[in-house]
C-alpha cells in the first residue's frame, strides 16, 4: 500500500465542490426562478417575492446545509482522531441526544409554539448540560475510554427521557412534531436560526481546528503524544467542548442528522494520507458537500413529500456502516 498524498489538490477540489453545491442549493426549490434571476434576487434586486424567497428561505437553507454539514464532518474527524477509533462520531459523546431532549421538551411544553427560538435555545442548553456532565465525569485525566463510556450513559439517559416525553405526550400532534423534528431537516428554517447557530459553531470550529498537531501525535498512542509534549487534558477539553458547541448548535437548528460525521472522515482519510491534522479541514469541506448534496437530493427526488434529511443520510449511511464493519473484520484491524 503506497501513500502519495495530494491533500492540497483534494482540499481545492472539495472547496470547489462545496461552492458549486451551495450555489445549486440556492437555485433549487418549488418556486420556479431562473439561475441568473435568483442570484440577482439574492442581492436584493428584482421581483419582491423572488427577493423574499431567495433571502429568507433559500439562503438560510443553503447556509445551514453548509454549516451543519461542515460541523458534522469536522467533529467526526476530530473525535475519531482523539478517540483513535474509526467508529467514533459526534453522536457518541451524548451531545446530539441531549440537544434532542432539550428540543423535545420545548415542543412538549408548547414553548416552541410561543417563541420560535425556544426550541434551538433549549436544545443548546441540553447540549451544554451534557458537556458539563461529561467533563465532571471524565475529569482531567484525558482518558478516551472514560469519555466514550460517559457519552454512552448520557445518550441512553437522554434517549430514555425523550421516550418518556413522547410516552406522556397527551397530544398526538405534539408527538408527531417531536418525531419529525428528530428526523433532522433543513426545511422551513430562517436567518435567525443561522444567527443563533453561528457564534457557537464558530467557537466550536475554532477549538476543533486547534487539535490538529495533537491528533497527529496521538496516532502513536497517548504515552508517545505526552512524551512529545502534548497536554492530554487540554486535548480532551478542546475535543469535547468543540464538539459540544458546534454539534449542539447544529442539532439545535437542524435536528439529529446521523452518519455524516461517521462516513465523511472515512471517505476522505485516504486522500490526505490518513494524517489526522489534514483530515480536519478536508472533513469539514466533505461534510458540507455531503449534506448540501443530500439536501438537494431530498428536494429533487420527492419535492412534494418532504423527505427528512436525517432519513436520507441514515439510509445511505447504514449500509456504509455495514461495509465498514465488514472490511475491518476482513483486515483484522
Amino acid at each position: 500500500m503506497i501513500i502519495r498524498s495530494h491533500h492540497r489538490a483534494s482540499l481545492a477540489c472539495l472547496a470547489a465542490a462545496c461552492l458549486a453545491l451551495f450555489l445549486l442549493s440556492l437555485t433549487i426549490g418549488p418556486a420556479d426562478i431562473r439561475f441568473s434571476d435568483s442570484l440577482q434576487a439574492l442581492f436584493g434586486s428584482g421581483d419582491d417575492l423572488m427577493v423574499l424567497v431567495m433571502q429568507e428561505i433559500r439562503l438560510p437553507r443553503a447556509l445551514l446545509g453548509l454549516l451543519v454539514g461542515a460541523t458534522l464532518g469536522l467533529s467526526g474527524a476530530a473525535l475519531q482522531g482523539y478517540l483513535r477509533n474509526p467508529l467514533a462520531e459526534p453522536g457518541l459523546i451524548g451531545v446530539s441526544a441531549s440537544a434532542s431532549l432539550g428540543a423535545v421538551i420545548a415542543i412538549y411544553t408548547g414553548l416552541s409554539a410561543l417563541f420560535v427560538l425556544a426550541l434551538p435555545l433549549l436544545a443548546l442548553l441540553g447540549a451544554m448540560l451534557a458537556v458539563l456532565v461529561l467533563q465532571t465525569m471524565a475529569g482531567m485525566d484525558g482518558r478516551p475510554l472514560t469519555v466514550i463510556l460517559t457519552g454512552i450513559a448520557i445518550s441512553s439517559l437522554a434517549g430514555a427521557m425523550t421516550s418518556l416525553v413522547l410516552n406522556l405526550s397527551p397530544n398526538p400532534f405534539a408527538a408527531t412534531e417531536v418525531m419529525f423534528w428528530m428526523l433532522g431537516s433543513l426545511t422551513d428554517r430562517s436567518m435567525p436560526h443561522v444567527w443563533l447557530m453561528l457564534p457557537f459553531t464558530a467557537l466550536g470550529w475554532l477549538l476543533l481546528l486547534r487539535l490538529g498537531r495533537a491528533l497527529d501525535a496521538l496516532s502513536l498512542g497517548p504515552d508517545v503524544a505526552a512524551s512529545m509534549g502534548v497536554d492530554l487534558g487540554r486535548v480532551q477539553r478542546l475535543a469535547v467542548l468543540g464538539t459540544a458547541l458546534s454539534v449542539g448548535a447544529a442539532t439545535a437548528v437542524a435536528g439529529a442528522i446521523g452518519f455524516v460525521g461517521l462516513i465523511v472522515p472515512h471517505l476522505l482519510r485516504p486522500l490526505v494520507g490518513a494524517q489526522p491534522s489534514r483530515l480536519l479541514p478536508a472533513s469539514a469541506l466533505g461534510g458540507a458537500v455531503l449534506l448540501l448534496s443530500a439536501d438537494i437530493l431530498v428536494r429533487v427526488i420527492a419535492p412534494d413529500r418532504d423527505i427528512k434529511l436525517g432519513v436520507l443520510t441514515a439510509i445511505v449511511g447504514a449500509p456504509f456502516f455495514f461495509w465498514l464493519v465488514w472490511s475491518h473484520r476482513r483486515t483484522g484491524l
Binding site: M1, I3, S5, R84, R213, D216, A217, L218, S219, L220, G221, D223, V224, S227, M228, G229, V230, R269, P270, G273, A274, Q275, P276
Partner: peptide, 25 residues
Amino acid sequence: AYLPQEREIAWAMSVEAVVALGRLP
C-alpha cells in the same frame, strides 16, 4: 525521547509522516 513497548499506530499514515512526527516538540 521515549520508545514505548506498544507499537501502536492508529492510522494508515506513510512511514515518512510518522517519522516526521518526532519533530513536533
